[in-house]
Simulated scan of single mutants.
Amino acid sequence: MNDTDETGKPLPSRRDALATGLALLAGSSPLVASAHTAAPLAGKSVKRGIAYDLANKEDLRVLSPGVSWWYDWGLKPNPGAPANYRRKYDMDFYSMLWNDSYDHATVVAWLKANPKIKFLLVLNEPNLVEQANKTPQQAAAFWPGYERIAAETGVKIVGPQITWGTMAGYGDPVAWMDAFYAAYRAANGGRDPRIDYLGFHWYDYGLSGQLDRLTKYGKSFWVTEFANWHWQSDGAQIDTLEKQMAQMTDMVSVCEQRADVFRYAWFTGRWNPDPHFSSLLTSPGTGQLTALGKHYLSLPFTKARP
């Protein structure tokens, strides 16, 4: 398993963290698929996205029949993406502030110049030391910066992008979030932080149960990274394309059927090597979907993109 994907995004050491999270769901078989179904609709899902650095028109063209949005962990789209992506491909790009290293004026100017970017993703996996690596207290200190950007531009704040992590004392996303709320309130006269939507990442069985644990915060979700990378040799490991397809079907159904999931994004576009069969796209420049990519675009949905 590489330390980064081909876009350069660090791939965290998730195995122990995911095993810990999954243990909370003990008692439900990981092999039992959801029975959710959705009636066929014309068009494409307004919720369905991809977490990937789309860098050329071929990729946007082939994804556009079934994918409505993407992000690339940065403020702007890849320079290789066509500037007319929204008009030509009917796809939205959403900016992300990965941590607190950004220039306020630059971010505000970009968002004002691109008013169709209605949502701002913030703080990528703060309790993973391989990712943003921010304690709840650190995040509480710089969160008002996100709030100022939202106030000046009108964007909605989506984040933090929480998951099961590797930070001592805060591996559980609920432990991190509780401490974050407490630290923010203490520093801001008891006021809650502005969070318009809560982000979540998950790479195993039991997505719906994980989201249930986070409903205590009263926010709708963006599942901004998901796939199933279950690796333990326990009979449930994801080691074939067919198993990943089955899990994609189940996880997409959860996201489509839950009214509290506003958006979701599969991870990822391309990855080589790809031990869990997660890639939606074949070789760069070919403009072709993998079998999994075709499956993703074909899955039923509950609300069409307007």
Score class of each variant (00 low, 15 high):
Met1Thr: 12
Asn2Leu: 14
Thr4Met: 12
Lys9Asp: 11
Pro12Ala: 15
Leu18Ser: 14
Leu22Glu: 12
Leu22Met: 15
Gly27Lys: 12
Ser28Tyr: 13
Leu31Met: 08
Ser34Phe: 03
Thr37Ser: 15
Ala39His: 08
Ala42Arg: 14
Gly43Ile: 05
Lys47Phe: 14
Lys47Thr: 04
Arg48Asn: 13
Leu54Val: 14
Glu58Gly: 12
Glu58Asn: 07
Asp59Val: 01
Asp59Arg: 03
Leu63Cys: 05
Gly66Ala: 09
Val67Lys: 07
Val67Met: 09
Gly74Glu: 04
Leu75Ser: 02
Lys76Pro: 09
Asn84Glu: 14
Tyr85Trp: 07
Tyr89Gln: 02
Met96Asn: 02
Leu97Pro: 00
Ser101Gln: 06
Ser101Trp: 03
Val108Ile: 01
Leu111Val: 08
Ala113Gly: 04
Ile117Met: 00
Ile117His: 09
Lys118Cys: 04
Val122Met: 02
Pro126Trp: 02
Pro126Val: 01
Asn127Ser: 11
Pro136Val: 12
Ala140Gly: 13
Ala140Thr: 07
Ala141Leu: 15
Phe142Cys: 00
Pro144Ser: 07
Arg148Asn: 06
Ala151Ile: 13
Ala151Ser: 04
Thr153Phe: 10
Gly165Met: 08
Gly165Val: 09
Gly169Asp: 05
Tyr170Gln: 07
Tyr170Glu: 05
Gly171Lys: 05
Ala179His: 01
Ala183Arg: 01
Arg185Ile: 00
Ala186Val: 07
Ala186Phe: 09
Gly199Phe: 04
Phe200Ser: 01
Leu207His: 06
Ser208Met: 12
Ser208His: 10
Leu211Val: 08
Arg213Ser: 08
Arg213Val: 03
Thr215Pro: 09
Lys216Asn: 10
Lys219Trp: 08
Phe221Asp: 00
His230Trp: 12
Trp231Asp: 09
Ile238Cys: 12
Leu241Tyr: 06
Glu242Phe: 05
Lys243Asn: 10
Met248Asp: 03
Val254Met: 14
Arg258Met: 09
Arg258Gln: 11
Phe262Asn: 01
Trp266Asn: 05
Phe267Trp: 05
Thr268Cys: 10
Pro273Leu: 10
Ser279Pro: 05
Thr282Phe: 08
Pro284Glu: 10
Leu289Glu: 06
Tyr296Pro: 00
Leu299Asp: 04
Phe301Gly: 10
Arg305Pro: 00
